[in-house]
Design a protein around this nucleic acid. Structure first.
Length: 262
DNA sequence: AGTACCACCTGACGGC
DNA sequence: TGCCGTCAGGTGGTAC
């Protein structure tokens, strides 16, 4: 799940729960997710620190600590977070890293497939530069977006998912954006006319904003979205036919052949 | 520069 | 019910 809207909702969730709490101890159940840090030193770095404030860039979530360093969370394909009272509720399944606070509440970084990342970094900006992460997709102006479009050469779906051009869009939301913009994912950037370019930018913003407003709950998504019915043979929300699945940019993609011409 | 493919991990699901 | 193959919303490396 975790693309930009999901990670934004996780961020808001942390703000509403674990923020300002002081860490008592850290338990690492899946050392695999730790990057450039041992379980022991993660615990040492965090003990006594508070979760001061959160930020996000694309699919990366940062929690600033009292000492100015940042806890970095990336969720891969199966990451999630959960906060609960330590005594009553039982530890969620697949809890990879568990943070216990002074108030005995628990913040859990969950990751079933362990493809995510937990680390401590000095500075998110520096991290983004080192990893060549593009600007957050929601902070991108139309002009910046169009400039990037003009420089690109490949297919439109690969463009949207390229984290170096803009950060945050993954497989699922790229399909939704392209459906809303009525563009086929395999269309080459250079064949897009100005109206299509503008439409794409509008769809990008509205899809991401809408998903966040709905707290990424597919049941709350507008009827016009394909995400809640993301499977082959599902009806096109515009009543134009049925969705088909095809591989584009190496990923499973769902398109309405009537609305989205190749 | 862009794409295609593999690897990383492990669970969920459908078919037999 | 049980086993097996297939697929999964991310990312990074490698090889064209």
């Amino acid at each position: 799940m975790p693309e930009l809207p999901d990670v934004e909702v996780y961020r808001q969730y942390i703000d509403a729960t674990a923020l300002k709490q002081k860490v008592k101890r850290v338990q690492v159940n899946a050392p695999k997710v730790l990057q450039d840090i041992s379980a022991q030193s993660l615990g040492r770095r965090l003990a006594g620190e508070r979760f001061k404030r959160t930020s996000r860039r694309g699919k990366h979530l940062f929690v600033e600590l009292t000492d100015g360093s940042h806890l970095l969370l990336h969720f891969g394909m199966t990451g999630n977070v959960h906060y609960y009272a330590g005594d009553g509720e039982q530890r969620p399944k697949f809890a990879a890293v568990v943070f216990t606070f002074e108030n005995d509440c628990v913040f859990s970084y969950i990751n079933k497939r362990k493809l995510g990342t937990v680390s401590i970094i000095d500075d998110p900006e520096e991290f983004a530069a080192e990893n060549r992460l593009g600007p957050d997709a929601l902070s991108l102006s139309e002009q910046e977006f169009l400039e990037r479009l003009e420089k690109g050469r490949g297919g439109i779906k690969a463009f949207l998912m390229n984290q170096r051009l803009m950060a945050g869009i993954g497989n699922e939301y790229s399909d939704e954006i392209l459906f809303q913009a009525r563009l086929h994912p395999a269309v080459g950037l250079r064949s897009l006319d100005p109206a299509a370019r503008k439409r794409l930018f509008g769809a990008l913003k509205s899809v991401l904003h809408t998903a966040i407003e709905c707290r990424v709950d597919p049941e709350k998504f507008p009827r016009s979205f394909i995400t809640p019915r993301r499977r082959e043979g599902a009806p096109c929300p515009r009543g134009n036919g049925t969705l088909v699945k095809q591989t584009v940019a190496g990923r499973s993609s769902y398109v309405c052949p009537q609305c989205q011409q190749a």
